[in-house]
Design a binder for these strands. Sequence first.
RNA 1: GCGUCGGUGCCCGAGCGGCCCAAGGGAACGGCCUGCAAAGCCGUAAAGUCGCGGGUUCAAAUCCCGCCCGGCGCUCCA
Length: 457
Amino acid sequence: MRIYDTLSRKIVDFVPRKEGAISIYACGPTVYDHPHLGHARQAMTYDIARRFFEWAGYDVLHVANITDIDDNIINRATREGLTEPEVAEKWEAIYMDAMAALDILAPHQQPHATEYVQEMIDFIQVLVDNGAAYVTDAGVYLRVRSIEDYGALIHRTHDELAEGAGARVEVDPNKEDPLDFALWKAAKPGEPTWPSPWGDGRPGWHIECAAMSLGILGDGFDLHGGGTDLVFPHHTNERAEAIAAGRTFSRYWMHNAMLNIDGEKMSKSLNNFATIQDVLDEHPLNARALRLMLLQTHYRKILEINAEVIAHARSGIERLDAMIRKAEAAKVDYASAELDSDAVAEFRTQMEDDFGTPEAMAIAFELVRRANGAIDSGDDSAASLVATAIDLTGALGLRIGETQPTSDDDVRIDELVAARTEAKANKDFAEADRIRDELAGQGITIEDTPTGPIWRR
RNA sequence: GCGUCGGUGCCCGAGCGGCCCAAGGGAACGGCCUGCAAAGCCGUAAAGUCGCGGGUUCAAAUCCCGCCCGGCGCUCCA
């Protein structure tokens, strides 16, 4: 396995800390608003990595935090007259629903920041004790310049970073140096607080992930991920905290790229902001279409997204599903078929090269084309090809060939389809087309196959 | 401004020194199939400037230099 490591800026061999087991920490959401497509890309990137590793036989431990206390949550609670936990619980539930709808596996552990405050305090205490951090009236800060390669993740020196620091935000006068950042924020009126050796207050943002990742996964865990926008300051600061505490932090860093809508960055101010729910509501196929799109673009490339592109991806999903319908109509016994070892090997090779999901999907679509041909010609290889296509797309979290949901309507539709078949047999094509149009008006599509008609919603 | 990543067909996007007269998906067109469709299969399209201009090399979409354009980071952010 080879992965592009943000720290070394190279594609490097990925060697897990423990053979056969992989530990992943991916930064999760701050729950205070609707999750948007960017969250979907982030979560799906690590969902795909985790699924592939599991498919490849690794024992994976995937951890993603839930930030349930921060400025945004406090602001929203104040604005809406709610408590911070009420805001966090509400938006966490919405986030979880969106993830489930996108068929993203829940990380094995999803710790909440507020449940980890004591561990964070213990962590900060180590930093205060060893002189890496200092206490002021406003809180506890980390002495950034005490860390030699602080800017390593973004490949910048202290001085280069200092040029930017304070250029746009006012420098906190309590800090010894503009680069320093808060580990612990002293209590302000009206804010939720926790007791600490440095007075009541709440933890800074970065300490949360440092404490939880090391606490759950242990020193030198394998992979730390997130969006590229987190490289600085978030990941840089987490890493600084770990180093200052004498801990070995994650051994590989991966970062997924952002996405653009209609050629521009997605943002609230540009009003081109798409929530996950908006996209899911638009079409029942969109959850899988979104995954297909993400798979067909490498995770480190900016992804262009708009309504048209999602619609195109839906066509791709339909092509995948159509193969399964054909296979079932032709009674191809793919459930117990052996996989095509060449395709599996090629798939694995591509995925092991920094998650080559676009190439992996190309392999899957090749299988689909060959399978369709084999089904049409009654070739024995059909079962294996179909089975392989299902297995490989499944390894990426893309379900195809799911039986469509049944409803009370099914019997009535079956009868209409049968009536059409009879009309066709009697050469009464006017009646056959009338039935087909009637069903089409209800969103039902009939497909004729050599082995009889099948229908779908 | 500084840093960084990128600009490939009608669209989305792989490829990153020879296997590329450029994967895969979508759209289009033609053929087969069909009662007609849909789905499927087969095939086609000057991708002739792989952003533009230089250069290196026997060989460049792939490396180097300059320029133009865009994303992201420098500020809460996936």
